[in-house]
């Protein structure tokens, strides 16, 4: 509730530049929806538990005896403890997995591949569509097209994270992980390395620049830095 109340305050500044709850692409968007629904549900459950606790102090104790205890076990343990929690959790689990499925990097005709290589403390990006192009700490992508970022590392573990576009995925030496991102609009989006990597960790950041179709083609042709 407190968190919800503060949102408008935060929107006033430029803070949403790095915010996971101010999505600028489909993946971040559906995750933000998941978050708001879970926040509402969690608040409701928290209030329920609090009310039950408070009521326990307002009552004068119930009937005693074995029959009363068996009745209490049915209500509190089988009903609330097992029934209620399992119903809520089953629904949430299924929904979470369904969202996860939608975010996977499935092949498609429109998909653009780029490569990201983390190292202490630089990100290098290369583009299979434009062999030989390499940018440092700046990833260029076309807007409103699905992008598969092929992520790896040359030294320690890093993590590729553009909060407004999608969740994060680790850069691990010897492995290549694929993350699907997409930006609705052209623009600049802040990116971080999100796995602790030593003394330069805080400054290990990058920018994602999403272009309109024409500008993207120009970039591939080598016209832009």
């Amino acid at each position: 509730m407190v968190i919800g109340g503060i949102t408008p305050l935060m929107l006033a500044g430029c803070e949403e530049r790095v915010s996971a709850v101010h999505p600028a692409g489909p993946a971040a968007d559906i995750i933000a929806t998941l978050w708001w629904v879970m926040l509402a549900g969690a608040t409701a459950i928290f209030l329920l538990v609090t009310i039950l606790l408070v009521l326990a102090f307002r009552r004068g104790g119930g009937p005693s005896g074995e029959a009363a205890d068996i009745r209490r076990e049915t209500v509190w343990i089988k009903g609330l403890g097992l029934g209620f929690t399992m119903a809520v959790l089953a629904a949430l689990t299924v929904w979470g997995l369904w969202i996860g499925e939608r975010l996977l990097p499935r092949p498609g005709p429109d998909v653009v591949a780029v490569e990201a290589e983390g190292r202490q403390w630089v990100w290098r990006f290369t583009y299979p569509d434009a062999p030989g192009r390499m940018t440092e700490d700046e990833l260029h992508i076309p807007a409103s097209r699905p992008i598969d970022v092929h992520i790896t590392s040359t030294d320690v573990i890093h993590s590729f994270w553009v909060p407004r576009l999608a969740g994060k995925l680790d850069a691990i030496p010897g492995h290549v992980n694929v993350l699907r991102i997409e930006a609705w609009e052209p623009g600049e989006y802040a990116g971080f390395s999100a796995e602790f990597s030593g003394t330069g960790y805080r400054r290990h950041t990058f920018t994602v620049i999403a272009h309109e179709a024409a500008a993207w083609n120009a970039f591939l042709a080598g016209e832009m830095p």
Binding site: A20, I31, M38, A42, G96, G167, K168, L169, F196
Partner: peptide, 21 residues
């Protein structure tokens, strides 16, 4: 209870992709 509820949130794979670290 609050910690448990946020724990269930990060158990959701997509949400954890954002919240992790």
């Amino acid at each position: 209870v609050m910690g448990g509820l946020t724990g269930v949130m990060v158990a959701m794979v997509p949400f954890d992709w954002q919240a992790h670290d």
